[in-house]
């Protein structure tokens, strides 16, 4: 086996660090967008009646059927043709990732909301709260605690999926790793390093969320 050399990594460390930052920002923004979509869609599907449930279900199931690669490529190349306005890669990346993840987020939130006991809604209504007040102050907080493990794994998805944004040339970690590998002809060191970085980003999150959940579980059990 040929030698392993660290210089390609150390030589471009600022470039790669910048790329890592882009990955983090991309993941965070798409999680935020996905969360916003997920809360609205999840709550509307749970409380909004049959028609809304069906229509929004269509969005959710469609995102389960279409690969993220396709969504990203469509968002960056085809969507601007619809709105008559070009998007920069980062915006397209966040929209594509967020919309795709939003469907899974919506399902998670819907599961969380329905897992809270019916009696909690009755108790809140019995105090004279409106449905919206009850959902906001009583149901949603409990649901969020219960969803913590699922939210943690969705975060891991967000980070892993951010790598797919490389195909539309978002300057995130994978893309920039490819650039450096192409320049230095040392793919092994660079791709392995990239793998390690992703691993270090994702693995502790999954474990960490488990620990936090165990501490907070009593806040969600009614």
């Amino acid at each position: 086996m040929p030698s392993v050399v660290l210089s390609p990594i150390t030589g471009s460390w600022q470039f790669l660090l910048q790329a890592l930052w882009t990955t983090v920002v991309l993941s965070a923004l798409s999680m935020a967008l996905a969360f916003a979509i997920g809360v609205v869609v999840g709550a509307l599907r749970t409380y909004g009646g049959r028609l809304l449930d069906f229509t929004l279900g269509f969005y959710v199931d469609s995102m389960r059927a279409i690969p993220l690669l396709v969504v990203l490529v469509w968002t960056f190349f085809a969507f601007p043709l619809v709105i008559g306005h070009s998007l920069n890669v980062m915006t397209a990346g966040v929209i594509g990732l967020g919309t795709h993840l939003g469907a899974y987020m919506a399902e998670t939130i819907r599961a969380g909301l329905t897992s809270v006991r019916r009696g909690q809604m009755w108790a809140a209504l019995a105090l004279g709260m409106s449905r919206v007040q009850a959902i906001r102050t009583i149901i949603l907080p409990q649901a969020l605690v219960r969803m913590l493990p699922a939210l943690g794994s969705l975060f891991v998805f967000a980070v892993k999926d951010s790598a797919i944004a490389s195909v539309i040339a978002v300057p995130e970690l994978l893309r920039q790793t490819q650039v450096v590998a192409g320049n230095t002809f040392r793919p092994f060191e660079l791709y392995t390093a990239a793998m390690l970085v992703y691993f270090l980003l994702c693995f502790p999150v999954a474990r960490g969320v488990d620990r936090i959940y165990r501490r907070l579980a009593h806040l969600g059990s009614s």
Binding site: R117, G119, Q120, W122, A123, A124, L125, A126, L127, G128, M129, S130, R131, I138, P141, Q142, V145, H218, L219, G220, S221, S222
Partner: peptide, 24 residues
Amino acid sequence: DPKSARAVRQRMGMVFQNFELFPH
């Protein structure tokens, strides 16, 4: 009628078999 229902529930107190305290 949501509004009048809420008004009624504000003037009636209810205690449930399963307590239904808000755990969070």
